[in-house]
Design a binder for these strands. Structure first.
Length: 561
RNA sequence: UGGCCUAUGGUGUAAUUGGCAACACUACUGGUUUUGGUCCAGUCAUUCUAGGUUCGAGUCCUAGUAGGCCAACCA
């Protein structure tokens, strides 16, 4: 009765089948295996939610494993950033692992393969090896070193390990099938010489295992039951299984690799190379710029972990090409923020309003509801006085009846305050309205219970008392790209689609309750959107980011007005 | 010229494995509302094509078509 039977995705179907056919629930184990060579982005978030979500669903442990087999690209800084991001998303890993933990075991197994005649040292250049690899339509040819003796292979491999050779002099290759229709089975490289210090093993090793020789074996060591990766690894599965065949013992669980389609977000690029260009060419301010699709960027922008998890859950997982519309992410961000974000009033594009029949030095503190979605959030006080700011867009000298805002001779309610009527306005020499003179209905105060206070007027505006307002920098973000698939155009560089107006900085005027806002605090600026306090913010100089606008039916309607 | 994967509304996923194509988002209607927000109700599909099997096909068979992946000492 409680929850409607949720339909399973294809990965869950596989697991359910395995459970029916002999796997026990406590054999289930997953892992999230990033290479620590960059920052995590929304695509990784989807994979994190898949693996950790499965862990939660089946009560199974999930390891965080760093695939750190290439010291040329990897750094501790990224390890730390990745841990912080996964943690922020709200997931707990059972155990923190590193492929580098397994270097010795991997090496020992490699010697075993040599002894069994399943691996050999090749002494050709990488160009020669590539040449012999053939093409997808033509078979490869065998290396002249393919039939070295076990003794010679062992001697050479140990020499490689001991640092007797320069980079590129030798590699260790698996001896499989140079004519396989799967290029990866044509004697793949297992080890290469790299005289580079590793962020964890330092100079202990100068040979490093390749991905294919490392990943499945690491899964095996950790007894991962289902090793999930993206579709481009599908051809690797045959090799994954071949390596496992060489060393799996009967009494241990044999990991399975299964592949799913990576999620693509519209109006976004995620490749490290492209994000780096955005950073280097100063299109954004850094990897955590709120416009970046990195987890750190989304965190800074004010997205909540819950909204990202809900998003990942909603889009699901499958095997076909996809481009998820970014509006779905926006929906989940709004959906969660609507429930948790306190409402406040802030004016970003001020127009002065003078209440001519309000006392010159008058001031009163009105009750304002913090969140109509959350009764427990209570009320706060908001100051009212004779001179206020409203948004410029909220006043027109004249307008048709679809304009539910302030116009000359018309009435409108000030949120939490009084009903006012626009009597006149003054303009500068260019004809721009710079001030509106209004009268207020003295008995119409919100919540006072008077007949006047219950009057219905079409339109409620947010506002702020000028003399009480605090000023703050507000950063208004828009999509970084104007095209849905910026990097899918053959003849155009993705940089051509950068939105020139993705950031606008304004000075906002806010109700004084915001004075003590702390970095990361989230608010709804009523009628405008959700905002949070940026990292750059200081107590005396607050900085807000617009996380996402409110849904705006009026903006669409406006053209027709 | 080879091998492998995929195809369901504008978008992303479902369909008890052969039994009324469902859910969410978007868009559009209307209602409620002291946020043009939220909330509520409604509208939007020849399941890539053509044949076939069947009482019955998104699902099975055959032949096409389209898209993707594979030739790093990257992961």
């Amino acid at each position: 009765m409680e929850d409607v039977e949720k339909s399973l995705n294809f990965i869950e179907h596989i697991i359910e089948d395995d459970l029916k056919n002999g796997y026990s629930n406590d054999e289930l184990r997953f892992r999230f295996p990033p290479e620590p060579n960059g920052y995590l982005h929304i695509g990784h978030a989807s994979s994190i939610c898949l693996n950790f979500g499965l862990g939660l669903r089946y009560g199974a442990p999930v390891n965080l494993r760093f695939d750190d087999t290439n010291p040329a690209k990897e750094e501790k800084e990224y390890v730390d950033a990745i841990k912080r991001d996964v943690d922020w998303l709200g997931y707990n890993w059972k155990s923190e692992r590193y492929a580098s933990d397994y270097f010795q075991q991997l090496y020992d197994w490699a010697e075993e393969l040599i002894v069994k005649g399943k691996a050999y040292v090749d002494s050709q250049t990488s160009e020669e090896i590539a040449e012999q690899k053939g093409t997808p339509t033509e078979p490869g040819t065998e290396s002249p070193y393919r039939h070295r003796s076990v003794e010679e292979n062992l001697t050479l491999f140990r020499g490689m390990k001991n640092g007797d050779f320069k980079e590129g002099e030798h590699v260790l290759r698996a001896k499989i099938d140079m004519e396989s229709s799967n290029m990866l089975m044509r004697d793949p490289v297992m080890y290469r010489i790299l005289h580079k210090p590793h962020h964890r093993t330092n100079t202990d090793w100068c040979i490093y295992p390749m991905y294919d020789w490392t990943h499945g074996e690491s899964d095996y060591i950790e007894q991962v039951s289902h090793s999930l990766c993206t579709l481009e690894f599908l051809p690797h599965r045959e090799l994954y299984n071949w390596f496992l065949d060489q060393l799996v013992s009967e009494d241990k669980l044999r990991p399975k690799q299964r592949e799913f389609a990576r999620r693509n977000l519209s109006h976004t690029v995620v490749s490290k190379r492209k994000l780096l260009r955005l950073v280097e060419e100063n299109v954004v301010t850094g990897w955590d710029d709120p416009r970046m699709p990195t987890i750190s960027g989304m965190r800074r922008k004010g997205y909540t972990p819950e909204s990202i998890r809900n998003f990942a859950e909603t889009i699901g997982i499958a095997k076909r090409e996809n481009v998820v519309d970014v509006s779905l992410l926006d929906f989940h961000v709004r959906d969660h923020l609507n429930k948790i974000a306190p409402r406040v009033m802030a004016v970003l594009n001020p127009l002065k309003v003078v209440i001519t029949n309000y006392p010159e030095d008058g001031e009163e503190w009105l009750d304002a509801e913090n969140n109509p979605e959350d009764q427990s959030s209570g009320f706060r006080k908001v100051p009212f006085s004779r001179e206020l700011y409203i948004e410029q867009e909220d006043f027109r000298e004249q307008a048709n009846r679809k304009f539910f805002r302030l116009k000359l001779g018309g009435e409108v309610r000030l949120k939490n305050g009084y009903i006012i009527k626009a009597e006149s306005c003054t303009k500068d020499e260019d004809g721009n309205v710079i001030e509106v003179q209004c009268s207020y209905d003295t008995k119409s105060k919100s919540g006072s219970g008077t007949e006047e206070s219950l009057r219905k007027v079409k339109g409620t505006l947010h506002w702020v008392s000028i003399k009480h307002a605090i000023q703050a920098e507000v950063r208004l973000y828009d999509r970084l790209f104007v095209d849905a698939t910026p990097d899918a155009h053959k003849d155009q560089d993705f940089m051509e689609f950068v939105n020139p107006d993705s950031l606008e900085k304004v000075t906002g005027f806010m109700e004084p309750s915001l004075k003590d806002a702390k970095i990361g605090d989230r608010f709804q600026f009523q009628r405008l959107g959700y905002f949070n306090v940026d990292l750059d913010s200081k107590p005396e100089a607050l900085v807000f980011n617009r996380t996402v606008t409110l849904r705006d039916t009026w903006a669409k309607l406006e053209q027709s007005c």
